[in-house]
């Protein structure tokens, strides 16, 4: 196997696994330098010594906490890619390349249409599921919110009651005031970080939904592959 073949294999495998660009550049650069330093006349030998580029790519993906064989979306791409590869190999001139990429765009649109139909057809199943999930999330948020309000109310009530009590039955007043202040203190300690966490959770849920929709329709992926 030549240096170029080796690096191309590795690259496509890393790309499929979704390795970030800087990590990919690092890895490819390292292996390219190994070939160059070993000597151009020993490319086959060097490749044999290094092992299977796909295995190496898999190890790198695992090191980076990624799933080596990609998500199902990427596997679907596997089926599409061979056709693209062979057409590229035949070194089409610019005219044909242009046609080819336009066809590809057409196909992508058809794919999206098909997916849209599928989503609509299966809507009786997933709409109730999504609604139930949304309901649960809203309920959880409401409970958390209610707890906060209750904590604040108790703290505030006891504090006010305690101050009032100070003038009638001082010991009980002081006791109530102390409990009230503890309640308010707890509210202050817990409320701010909890609110932050809630906001962050909401943001990441929305992000997740957007990512899923993007993945289904592959928005922006054509650009990344080109």
């Amino acid at each position: 196997m030549s240096r170029l073949e080796f690096l191309m294999n590795m690259r496509s495998c890393l790309d499929k696994g979704g390795l970030p660009k800087n990590e990919m550049d690092e890895a490819l650069r390292y292996y390219e330098e190994i070939f160059l330093d070993a000597g151009p006349e020993k490319e086959d030998e060097t490749a044999a010594g290094l092992g299977d580029p796909e295995d190496i790519a898999r190890e790198i993906l695992i090191e980076n906490g990624l799933h080596p064989d990609g998500t199902p979306e990427f596997q679907m791409e596997d089926v599409k890619n061979p056709a693209q590869g062979s057409q590229n190999d035949q070194q089409y001139d610019k005219r044909y390349n242009y046609n080819y990429s336009e066809n590809n765009g057409q196909k992508q649109r058809n794919d999206n249409l098909l997916k849209l139909v599928l989503i609509l057809v299966t809507s009786p199943i997933w709409i109730p599921c999504a609604a139930a999930l949304l309901g649960i999330m809203v309920a959880v948020a409401a409970v958390i919110f209610a707890l906060f309000v209750a904590l604040a109310a108790i703290g505030f009530g006891l504090t006010v009651g305690g101050i009032a009590g100070l003038f009638s039955v001082p010991p009980i007043g002081i006791c109530l005031l102390g409990c009230g202040l503890i309640g308010l203190g707890l509210f202050g300690l817990i409320a701010v970080p909890m609110l932050k966490i809630c906001f962050r959770a909401a943001a990441s849920i929305i992000n997740g939904i957007v990512t899923v929709i993007r993945k289904i329709f592959r928005i922006g992926e054509a650009k990344a592959n080109g």
């Binding site: 690092e26 010594g49 092992g51 190496i56 090191e63």
Partner: peptide
């Protein structure tokens, strides 16, 4: 020194390949 030479040097003592060394260097 550079990646290729590190491996060559280590080979005096242990049986390692450049592929074994990449994750080590990266880490």
């Amino acid at each position: 020194t550079y990646g290729y030479e590190i491996t060559q040097y280590l080979r005096r003592a242990v049986d390692v390949s450049e592929s074994t060394l990449y994750p080590v260097l990266r880490r």
